[in-house]
């Protein structure tokens, strides 16, 4: 047992070797050391979902994970999904549906919905209940959710959502 621990995190496809205090929260490492500012801290208790990342592909609230717990695991933030066709489709649908206002919850919402839509057959899109249930992991105080749900369903129906011009 030592004061700092050496960890290797695979963040957005890049390995980072870091010395961290065991108490350091993953979200703080991502924000403060790696300057991944899409990670937002809204409650630091796993309720609001503004800090949602993909941990080995599963949406997880990075405020409730110690950096040491993520040793050797793959962490994907919104920045790491930039350019991905599913994410691009989702972002476009959010824009078209006015699905954001202050933007604080948006990155966590996008990451969470991305995991719902990724690899999904556009002919069997999620139901509205399924989308809303998944969004329970994200609080939004601005939009009332309706526009987000519409955006997610639109993106799901259009598959990658990436209609080539």
């Amino acid at each position: 047992m030592t004061e700092t621990v050496q960890v290797t995190l695979l963040v957005n496809g890049v390995e980072h070797a870091l010395a961290v205090e065991p108490r350091l929260i993953l979200a703080d490492v991502l924000r403060e050391r790696m300057e991944l500012h899409s990670i937002h801290l809204g409650c630091e208790e796993g309720i609001c979902g503004a800090c949602t990342v993909l941990l080995d592909g599963e949406p997880s609230t990075s405020c409730l994970i110690l950096a040491v717990q993520a040793e050797g695991r793959s962490i994907t933030t919104l920045e790491g999904l930039d350019g991905d066709p599913t994410m691009t489709g989702l972002q476009a649908a959010f824009h078209e549906n006015f699905a954001l206002q202050c933007g604080f919850c948006t990155p966590g919402v996008l990451v969470n919905l991305f995991s719902l839509l990724e690899d999904r057959d556009p002919s069997a899109p999620p139901s509205e209940v399924e989308v809303r249930t998944r969004l329970n992991g994200n609080l939004c105080r601005c939009t009332g959710y309706q526009s987000m749900v519409a955006a997610a369903m639109q993106a799901a129906r259009s598959g990658s959502g990436h209609e080539d011009p």
Binding site: H37, F94, H95, L100, G103, T106
Partner: peptide, 12 residues
Amino acid sequence: EDSRFLKGEGVY
């Protein structure tokens, strides 16, 4: 204003 927020590039 959307594009910066959709990319997580809003500056709070």
